[in-house]
Design a binder for these strands. Structure first.
Length: 867
RNA sequence: GCGAAAGUGGUGGAACUGGUAGACACGUCGGACUUAGGAUCCGAUGCCGCAAGGCCUGGGGGUUCGAGUCCCCCCUUUCGCACCA
């Protein structure tokens, strides 16, 4: 009777492994279901209970799908390449190629201990040549399709990581990993032309079952805006300045032009006596970090170039300025300024005394502008276009510009190409050879993989070159084209390259002839359910979608979107000791980012006096010293109890505050279910189905009603990831079951019918199996079943047994609930009225009043309006 | 500033298409069994009130027989974007 969870859990984990219970076999007749969690980077700090906030519910979901008859693919692998692993290896003085597998093994063990049902025969590791060979192959595919290119461009450079970063890896102007302020640095780098897919990445979001917030983030990042390009002729010279504007209808109000400080025309346009000032300004702007430049609060600055351009609609000469609020990376790097109707332009014009002209009006009459408004309305002061609405004008002017050959309607995106080069060691080498005679030559497929050399020293160089550049045996090679001496590309690919296609590899992980066979891909893909952290909302998900579309265009996969359903788990927060910052620590922070709390370092724990310690909830992480490990919890309460707690405590998407009191409650529930089931096992009759029919006593009817209502509820709620309410329903069921058949000295009452007890026991086990798999499997076998519970069908819902016989109908008088009457299900209005009027409480509320109206809602409500 | 989501007991959280607010748990209080219990079982538990009854879903309006749910305004929190032309 004693619930020895440690023994039971170890036993089933062993048997599942030995019997390969969760092996996914390709091509089976059962319909497939591919459920995937974002594969983790196995860190040295190990898994903590926070990681399980994703893995455990997703595992319960997989087990449920298996019981629903699906052939479930639930794989796990390691995102092993990249800077987190490399930095950790450097810090610990380890070789990453030895370190990563050790850490992965530790993760594997912890995941097994929590009873997660992975098919470990499909495990992948992105840092093994058998894997990254295909990452390189994908690079060559992109190159062949003109979607990979090398360009010298100012890139985001993280001085701490000593490498370039993709735009998606820059957060608030800082490196997303180390929070260092990112600099601009011109360097030759490899890019993927993701911008060529901007339209499709945007449009296909409609096909996805993702949260609206998630889609919105992708839309924002892609940043589509419709507008027009307009050429402004340079006054007294030749050539023109091309600007992008979303408001071509305000052309008559354009009173000056501003170029980005990096604009290529700036130097040529600037008149000699303004050159010194303009150059100084441009130099200063370039030296500034993105953060400072993007601070919207900052006052506008700019410098006049001395040059003028001609406004094409009215022939007026307007001055050309340069200012750092115009960014070279967006649009054309030049804007026409309409201070009358753009806040920024207005502020700039006010500061430098530039003219403000109103060209949009609410009602068609002009007035004195005190600010930039309105944004939309009717055109004024706009020549023959005056009187048009904003929308009409936009259309008309685009046609006119095109006719004149000085512009056209166009669409602009905020999305930038994907910088893939990293000047780091621990990544897939870019399969390119630089030949003095032939230029950039792709490594032939037959020569893949380009192996990452094993070296002693792989620290970043800081010169801007990859550590690989110092390894002559790697660098020096023969040109695949002409055979002459050549140098290998020494940059490696950023970690996102590996994670942009790994979900395909799980379909066919050992394939040596292709990244995966088309047959395996057609069977398993796309991913039916994907779960992971919201921090990948723009980067990983955008990249993976992009690569999938490229592979689709190449005819290598049969689908355009890799992840049909996506859900983001919340994080687990732990109470974390911190302190107020000291004055010098405050100094470095910008005005927009006030630091008012600093996590205590490990060595400060004992030194800071308790009254100065400020406790706050923070995400669990080793560095904050607030982690709780699954091992501790499993040892004390068991994996099943830990799992139930992780799912019961809050909705899947919510952040939760970890508390050990909560897990005790879950443990009580699991142990209670165990004790009741142990008492039910001796009463179990395999032939209960044939004996359950027929008229039943009221108590039996009631408990069976609850049972079947629960069956329906739990299934529906697992499918929508509402694990917390599904568990609450099972708890209610257990409460109902123990009320019907309470435990008395470890046995169930003799008066209870064995067929009913059998139905209750068997169904309860099946309902619990996704959540508490060890308990589920153990009791399932105790009931005499030979095969795993995950091949047993999910319990059938019996609508007749679940139907209520009577219902409470609320009686309202003037909107206030005065009484309730118990009537048979679907009782007619007349009878409910009679019952209601017969009740003393209702009669009292109606006394002396005149009934004006009655509203009857079947099985719910009788609402009486009186005067 | 823009966009998204959210605000419900002492706590985590329930509530389908508007129809018994607070399910399920945690905690607390009381009781039983115990040498003991941080085990187990039973009961109570939104607030005010002895009670009858009244009041409760961030605040204020509105629609409705009826609003946590729908509409408008405001406040707060979280997340994302942020001089994007």
């Amino acid at each position: 009777m004693n619930y020895d969870f440690n023994e039971i859990e170890a036993k089933w984990q062993r048997i599942w492994r030995e019997k390969r219970t969760f092996r996914a076999v390709s091509g089976e007749k059962r319909p497939k279901y591919y459920c995937l969690e974002m594969f983790p980077y196995p860190s040295g700090s190990g898994l903590h209970v926070g990681h399980l906030k994703n893995y455990v519910p997703t595992d319960a979901f997989c087990r449920y799908q298996s019981m629903k008859g699906f052939n479930v693919l639930h794989p796990m692998g390691w995102d092993a390449f990249g800077q987190p692993a490399e930095n950790e290896a450097i810090r610990r003085g380890r070789n990453p190629r030895e370190m990563v597998p050790e850490y992965a093994a530790a993760y594997r063990e912890t995941l097994a201990k929590t009873g997660c049902s992975y098919d470990w025969e499909r495990e992948i590791n992105s840092s093994l040549p058998g894997y990254y060979r295909w990452t390189q192959w994908m690079f060559l595919l992109l190159l062949r399709k003109g979607l990979a290119y090398r360009a010298t461009a100012p890139i985001n450079w993280c001085p701490a990581c000593k490498t370039g970063l993709a735009n998606e890896e820059v957060k608030d102007g800082r490196c997303w990993r180390c929070d260092t302020v990112v600099e601009k640095k011109p360097m030759p780098q490899w890019f993927f032309r993701i911008t060529a897919y901007a339209d499709r990445l945007l449009a296909d979001l409609e096909k996805l079952e993702w949260s609206e917030g998630m889609k919105e983030m992708q839309r924002d990042w892609i940043g589509r805006s419709e507008g027009a390009e307009v050429d402004f002729a340079v006054a007294g010279g030749n050539g023109a300045i091309r600007v992008f504007t979303t408001r071509p209808d305000t052309l008559f109000g354009a009173t000056f032009i501003v170029l980005a400080p990096e604009h290529p025309l700036l130097a040529a346009l600037t008149v000699p006596d303004r050159r010194a000032e303009v150059e100084a300004y441009a130099r200063r702007a370039q030296g500034e970090s993105e953060i400072d430049r993007l601070n919207a609060e900052r006052a506008k600055t700019g410098v006049f170039t001395g040059a003028y351009a001609v406004n094409p609609v009215n022939g007026e000469k307007i001055p050309v300025w340069t200012a750092d609020y115009v960014l070279m990376g967006y649009g054309t790097g030049a804007i026409m300024c309409v201070p009358g109707h753009d806040e920024r332009d207005f502020a700039f014009a006010r500061k430098y005394g530039l003219p403000v002209v109103q060209v949009v009006s609410r009602d068609g009459s002009a007035c004195d502008l005190q600010a930039a408004e309105p944004a939309e309305g009717v055109a004024v002061n706009s020549g023959r276009w005056s009187g048009l609405t904003t929308a009409e004008f936009k259309k008309a002017i685009a046609a006119w510009l095109e006719e004149q050959g000085i512009g056209r309607a166009t669409v602009n995106y905020r999305l930038r190409d994907w910088l893939i080069s990293r000047q780091r060691y621990w990544g897939a080498p870019i399969p390119i050879v630089h030949c003095p005679a032939c230029g950039e030559v792709p490594v032939p497929e037959s020569q893949l993989p380009v192996l990452l050399p094993d070296v002693d020293n792989y620290q970043p160089t800081g010169t801007g070159e990859s550590p690989l550049a110092a390894i002559s045996s790697f660098v020096n090679t023969a040109c695949p084209k002409c055979g002459g001496p050549a140098r290998r590309e020494t940059d490696t690919m950023g970690g996102y390259a590996c994670s942009s296609w790994y979900f395909l590899r799980f379909a066919d992980p050992d394939n040596a002839a292709a990244f995966a066979s088309r047959r395996a891909l057609d069977y398993w893909l796309p991913v039916d359910q994907y779960t992971g952290g919201i921090e990948h909302a723009r980067s990983h998900l955008l990249y993976a979608r992009f690569w999938t579309k490229v592979l689709f265009d190449e005819g290598l996969v049969g689908f355009e979107e890799p992840f049909l359903n996506l859900r983001n788990q919340g994080s687990l927060l732990a109470l974390t000791p911190g302190r107020r910052p000291r004055p010098q620590e405050q100094a470095g922070a910008g005005e927009d980012k006030i630091v008012d709390w600093i996590v205590l370092r490990h060595d400060e724990r004992d030194r800071v006096p308790p009254e100065q310690v400020v406790w706050r909830w923070a995400r669990m992480s080793k560095s904050k010293g607030n982690v709780v490990t699954p091992d501790e919890m499993i040892g004390r309460y068991g994996a099943d109890s830990l799992r139930v707690y992780e799912m019961f405590v809050a909705p899947f998407e919510d952040n939760v505050q970890w508390s050990e009191e909560g897990i005790q409650g879950s443990h009580r529930f699991v142990a209670r279910a165990w004790r009741w089931l142990q008492a039910a096992v001796p009463r179990f009759r395999r032939d209960w189905r044939g004996r359950i029919a027929g008229e039943r006593a009221p108590a039996e009817k009631e408990v069976r009603r609850k049972l079947h209502q629960t069956v329906q509820k739990v299934g529906a709620q697992i499918e929508t990831f509402q694990f917390n309410t599904a568990l609450a329903a099972i708890m209610e069921l257990l409460n109902a079951i123990t009320a019907y058949a309470p435990l008395e000295r470890e046995a169930l009452p003799a008066a209870c019918d064995d067929a009913v007890l059998s139905e209750l026991a068997e169904t309860l086990v099946l309902l619990l199996a996704p959540f508490a798999p060890h308990l589920g499997e153990e009791v399932w076998r105790q009931l005499g079943n030979e095969d795993t519970v995950y091949r047993a069908p999910w319990p059938a819902f019996d609508a007749a047994a679940a139907a209520a016989e009577s219902v409470n109908v609320m009686v309202q008088v003037n909107g206030k609930i005065r009484d309730k009457v118990v009537v048979p299900l679907d009782c007619a209005e007349e009878e409910v009225k009679a019952a209601a009027l017969a009740s003393p409480k209702t009669a009292q509320a109606l006394a002396g009043k005149q009934v004006v109206k009655m509203i009857f809602v079947r099985n719910k409500m009788l609402s009486i309006v009186v005067r």
